[in-house]
Design a binder for these strands. Structure first.
Lengths: 119, 119, 119, 119
DNA sequence: GTGGTCTAGACCACA
DNA sequence: GTGGTCTAGACCACA
């Protein structure tokens, strides 16, 4: 379902969080669908169950999952979260631009960079 | 000379590194200028000399400083490093764009975001 | 696993780095094998964990190790590093020869010296 | 008379020692010739007199200079030292070879490297 | 005075 | 348990 990148320096639980957020926002995982159990996912990814636990807790905290005690974790309604997420992306671009401006880069530098990206 | 942000979760030594890199790239600190001594900066920022030591070692490793034993740390010639750094910024924008595309964002979204930034 | 030479004037962390580089390049420590933990090695060699930490950080920087957060340090793929290292050795010989030439030594002096070494 | 290399990481006093050893062994500085005074050399090289002092002390210890109190430093008879020095060079080559052998290098590798050096 | 190394010991995030 | 960061404090070589 998700694949970890061990060369990535970010913590594994964070990678798990990010991968699932994307799957949920893209609709691959749909509202009220049951998430894989902590244990089964831990086995599948061969990582420590504590790590999955931490990831799920974080996803719940951010509103991507809801927990039904004794039953498991389920995908929450993420309709509002997508726009939130897009807004975050824009904030990051703005932050990046301000950093670049300190180094003498212009808006045009950034825009041309974006336009030059091959899909 | 530099100010630490204690709300920032990144390690102190890393903040020191980043702040000085910027000062050097912007030309506030010029080639062959002497850096504050490890000890004096430690006192000024009220942090342990070892932490400054680690930051300076990293700055040296990255080519921003050179050490003269028994004399101190000096600002290296960073002319080549600025372009390197700008390239890094562009890579970050590209990475950010690819992330956004997964959420359904377009180049235009990013470009309009940039154009809308007030200076 | 490794033995320190306290008569050696070079810093302990550097000795640790060099010893492990050799073990890795010689294949005594193999790809993806787990390194002794920072703490256990510190106990075994009776030196401070910080010193091991510094050595491991340097080994990682040079591509001999990779770190998996929370799990430990592991031996990286060093296949490319061996040739690099051999090249370094050759540079040292060349440097040594140039030094000797200043003293009136010839290539033949060096070659005969090498041929005379008993295995 | 001698030129320092500030990019060299070895201590300045050591550079001074090595440069003078070479000048003496090559006969540029001859037996009983007076060395430049500590102060004048310090000024000429714009370094700390302590550093020259330390270098001269080391040169005396190794038999390259002798001191006449109140008169200055003079070049010693270095006829025996040249052979000693050449022997040291050979020991270094042998040490280097043993290091290389650990990495799988052969005598032939070293010899070919030497033969390939352009004068 | 300057940087570099090292120790002892603490605390934290992560798995 | 694992590595990473940080402090307080000491000692050393070098200039």
């Amino acid at each position: 379902m998700i694949i970890l990148d061990y060369k990535d320096t970010s913590p594994i639980y964070e990678q798990v969080v990010e991968k699932f957020k994307l799957l949920i926002l893209k609709g691959v995982l749909q509202k009220d669908e049951q998430m894989p159990s902590v244990r089964s996912l831990a086995v599948e990814l061969s990582i420590n169950p504590n790590t999955i636990q931490k990831a799920y807790a974080e996803l719940e905290r951010q509103g991507y999952l809801y927990v039904v005690k004794g039953r498991g974790n389920f995908v929450a309604d993420s309709s509002g979260l997508l726009d939130e997420r897009k807004e975050e992306m824009k904030q990051k671009v703005i932050y990046l631009y301000r950093e670049g401006r300190e180094l003498g880069m212009t808006k045009t530098d950034f825009i041309e960079c974006l336009q030059g990206i091959e899909e």
